[in-house]
């Protein structure tokens, strides 16, 4: 695929939270990645790795203060969103880029019917009449598997899975080019999660949207994504297509994530977790941020900042071991 098909291109993004009289919380530190048309990219990492801050930066929703985008660019169809006016951003949000939030219980307005909430998005972005908006909303509800007779029902009348469907209908109502889904199924039961994931895949194919899927579940990545970006302490530590990440896992952290899963090594009677905790983003160590938890750590790792090395085509790893070419 050529460069022109890049929908989103994030370059060297750095976002810190600067609370007064406290040390800066370095949430995102020099992150770069691209999403192409029709592609699903999985953004993987633990709590505090900076995943949600990246998503909020794309929509320019990082609360400021204390949040501040210090450097970098986020190009969406060639336009740097970090320089766009607020009025322009308002046009983009919900129509060209939309977001599904993690918790369907808190993302809906409790005192407005679900139909009207979806209609608001349609009405704002497509300048159509109320009657037209209503038809569009009914279509969307059917598309996500909710009977259109429930248009006037309120969020509390829906179960968690159904609320998440409403939110997906709302996010997709204007056929966005990019859909950001922040842990869309974490709050749902596994059978409902399966329904929602299958539906997201169908809709993505139908509408041709690209998806940035934020998740901590590697099983979901295996089923949904084309490319994977693994984050640790605000940095990309490994990225590549799904096959390279799953079959030629290179970074010790990514290996640790796989080792922590009960399904990864069926014959072992113990899990192989990563020791210790992620460093405090307000006090990041020099050099490799993962060094303290890494079984392969050497003096070199702490001596300098480690860059990304391309170990095979499109597969990047931030590790001293990969630099020598003898990654295992």
């Amino acid at each position: 695929m050529s460069d022109t098909e890049k929908i989103l291109s994030i370059k060297d993004l750095t976002v810190h939270y600067l609370p007064p009289e406290e040390p800066a919380c370095k949430a995102v530190n020099g992150v770069s990645f691209d999403i192409r048309k029709g592609e699903t990219l999985g953004l993987v990492g633990e709590t505090g790795a900076g995943k949600t801050t990246i998503a909020l930066s794309i929509l320019r929703l990082v609360q400021s203060p204390p949040g501040k985008i210090l450097s970098g660019s986020i190009e969406f169809n060639g336009e740097n969103l970090l320089e766009a006016s607020e009025a322009h951003m308002r046009k983009i949000r919900g129509s060209e880029i939309s977001m599904i939030f993690q918790d369907p219980m808190t993302a809906l307005n409790p005192i407005d019917s679900v139909g009207d909430q979806i209609a608001e998005v349609v009405h704002l972005h497509s300048k159509c009449s109320r009657a037209e908006a209503r038809i569009k909303v009914e279509e969307m509800l059917e598309l996500v598997g909710i009977d259109k007779s429930r248009y006037k029902d309120y969020p509390h009348q829906f179960s968690g899975g159904m609320k998440q469907r409403v939110i997906i209908a709302m996010a997709l109502a204007c056929s966005p080019e990019l859909l950001i889904a922040d842990e869309p199924t974490t709050a749902l039961d596994v059978t409902i999660q399966a329904q929602v994931l299958d539906m997201m895949n169908d809709l993505k194919k139908k509408l041709g949207s690209s998806v940035l899927l934020i998740t901590h579940d590697l099983g979901i990545v295996a089923e949904m994504c084309d490319k994977v970006v693994v984050m640790y302490a605000g940095q990309v530590v490994e990225m590549g297509d799904k096959r390279s990440i799953f079959k030629h896992t290179s970074h010790p952290y990514t290996k640790g994530l796989f080792g922590s899963l009960p399904g990864a090594f069926p014959d072992s009677d113990r899990l192989k977790p990563i020791k210790g905790l992620m460093p405090d983003p307000a006090a990041l160590p020099a050099g490799c941020k993962f060094a303290d938890r890494c079984e392969f750590c050497t003096e070199q790792c702490r001596a300098r900042e480690i860059g990304l090395t391309e170990v095979s085509e499109g597969h990047y790893v931030r590790c001293v071991l990969a630099e020598g070419g003898n990654h295992h």
Partner: peptide, 19 residues
């Protein structure tokens, strides 16, 4: 319904209707 870690295995999900 458990997401499968093996990327070479076709998903053989048995859909379960409703809630």
């Amino acid at each position: 319904a458990i997401p499968n870690l093996d990327i070479d295995q076709e998903s053989r999900r048995i859909p379960i209707q409703g809630e």
